[in-house]
Design a protein around this nucleic acid. Structure first.
Lengths: 216, 216
DNA sequence: CAGGTCAGTGAGCGCTCGCTTACTATGGTT
DNA sequence: AACCATAGTAAGCGAGCGCTCACTGACCTG
C-alpha cells in the first residue's frame, strides 16, 4: 500500500569498537550506515549528498537505494536505532542496583557516556531529527518521551525513599537531560575532558542538585 | 581585492518586540534578516532556500543579493551579531553589581534568558555555525571564547572572594554553559516553562553547584 | 535637468541533487 | 539445468538550487 518499500534491518551498526580507515569492513549495509552516521553528524543531513554516503562506503551512488527507499529513511533508521539502544542501555544500567543513589548514579553515568563516546549517534539523534517525515518524527518522539520518563522515575524513586530532598523534582530531570545531552554539542574524543570524567562530574552534580546524603 | 563584495550593516534586526504577521514592516534588509533568522532556526541553513528567504521578506528572489554576497554571508551576519549582542548583554548585566553572588546570578539569568526568549537567534548561532566558511567560523570562535571567559571570570571572582567554595571551578563553568545553552534546543515560547522561571532555576542551580552561602 | 546611487525586479544559466531504470554477477535451491 | 533472490553498477532524468545579469524607477545632488 505504501509507495516507499519498507525494508527490514534492525540489527547492524549499533555498536562499533572505535574502528575506521584501512579497507572498509562489514557488509555494504554496515558501511552505508557508518558512512551516513559520520556525514550526518559532521555536516548535517541536508548538507550530506547521497553520493557521498555511497562513496564513503566504497559503493556506487545507486547502492544506497538497494537498502533504503530514500535518504530520509537512512536518517530515520539511524535516529531510531540510536534512541532505542539508548533506552535499552539506560534500563540495563540501573537494573543491577536497588538503592536510589546507585541507580541514579548509574543512570546519569550511562546517559552522559552515550552522549560523549557516542557523540556522533547523539548529534544525529538530537539535531537532525527535525528533517524526519512527520510519521517518523512521531515514532522518535515516543521513544524520547520514554527516556525522559525513565529519568523522572529514578528521581521519584529517591524522593519516595526520602533520600533525595530536592523541592522540585522536575528541576532535577531538566538538569539530567540538559547536562547529559549538551555533551554531544561540544565533545570531541581528542578533547581536553575524557568521557569517563564527564560522566563522573555529571552524576556528582545531579546528586548534589537532588540533595542526596553525602553529596552536599 | 576580494571577489565577494563586503557590504556593511552592523545595525538592524538585533531586537524585535514579539511582532510578526500583518503587512511586513521595516526596511528590506530588516525583513530579509528576520526571514532568514526564522527559516534558519526552523529548518536549518542547508534546508533553507534563498528564494524562501526573499519571499518571506516580501521581495523577489534576487533581492537578497542586493544586500548580501551569498547565503553564507547572511548566516555569518546573523551568527556574528547574535554572539556580539550576547557578550554585550552579559557585560551589561553584571556591571551594576559588585558582590560575586549578585553578579553570577545576573550572569546566569541573562545568559539563560537569551537562550529562551532569543531561542531563534541562539539556535542559529549554536547549531548552524558549522556551515560558515573557515574565515567566518574563526571570527565566531573568538567571540564564543570571550563569552566562556566571561563566565570563568565570574566564577573565579567568587572563589577569590571566598564565597564560592566549589573544588573544581571548571565544572561550574561547564554547568553554566550547558544548562543555559541547552535551553534553545527544546524551549518553545508557548511551552510549559516560562523563560523567567528557567532563568531563576538555572541561577539557583549554579549557585548551589558553586556552594555559595545560603544556596546549599 | 543631467548624472549618479540605491533598492529592487524578471528572466534564466549552469550545475547538482535525489532518485530511477535497465542491467549484471553471484550464489542458493530444487 | 532452470529458476530466483540479493547486491550491486552505469547511465542519466527532471527538478530545483544558488546566483547572475541587464534593467527600472525613485530619489538625491549640483
Amino acid at each position: 500500500m505504501t509507495d516507499t518499500a519498507e525494508r527490514d534491518h534492525d540489527d547492524v551498526a549499533g555498536d562499533d569498537p572505535l574502528d575506521r580507515d584501512g579497507p572498509p569492513t562489514g557488509t555494504g549495509l554496515d558501511r552505508l550506515l557508518r558512512a551516513a552516521l559520520e556525514l550526518f553528524s559532521d555536516k548535517g543531513f541536508e548538507a550530506t549528498r547521497t553520493r557521498d554516503i555511497s562513496a564513503r562506503a566504497g559503493l556506487s551512488p545507486a547502492a544506497l537505494y538497494v537498502h533504503f527507499a530514500s535518504k530520509e529513511e537512512v536518517l530515520h533508521h539511524l535516529v531510531r536505532t540510536t534512541n532505542e539502544s539508548t533506552l535499552r542501555a539506560l534500563r540495563d544500567a540501573v537494573e543491577p542496583y536497588d538503592d536510589p543513589i546507585s541507580r541514579l548514579r548509574a543512570f546519569v553515568t550511562e546517559f552522559s557516556l552515550m552522549h560523549a563516546r557516542g557523540y556522533q549517534h547523539a548529534r544525529v539523534a538530537q539535531y537532525e531529527s527535525r528533517h524526519l517525515l512527520p510519521e517518523h518524527a512521531e515514532i522518535i518522539a515516543r521513544t524520547r518521551l520514554q527516556i525522559r520518563e525513565a529519568a523522572r522515575a529514578e528521581v521519584q524513586r529517591g524522593i519516595d525513599a526520602g533520600v533525595f530532598t530536592i523541592a522540585e523534582p522536575r528541576v532535577a530531570v531538566l538538569a539530567i537531560m540538559s547536562l547529559s545531552i549538551d555533551i554531544c554539542r561540544w565533545y570531541r574524543p581528542d578533547g581536553a575532558v575524557p568521557a569517563a570524567d564527564l560522566a563522573d562530574i555529571n552524576s556528582g552534580l545531579i546528586l548534589q542538585i537532588l540533595r542526596a546524603p553525602g553529596h552536599r
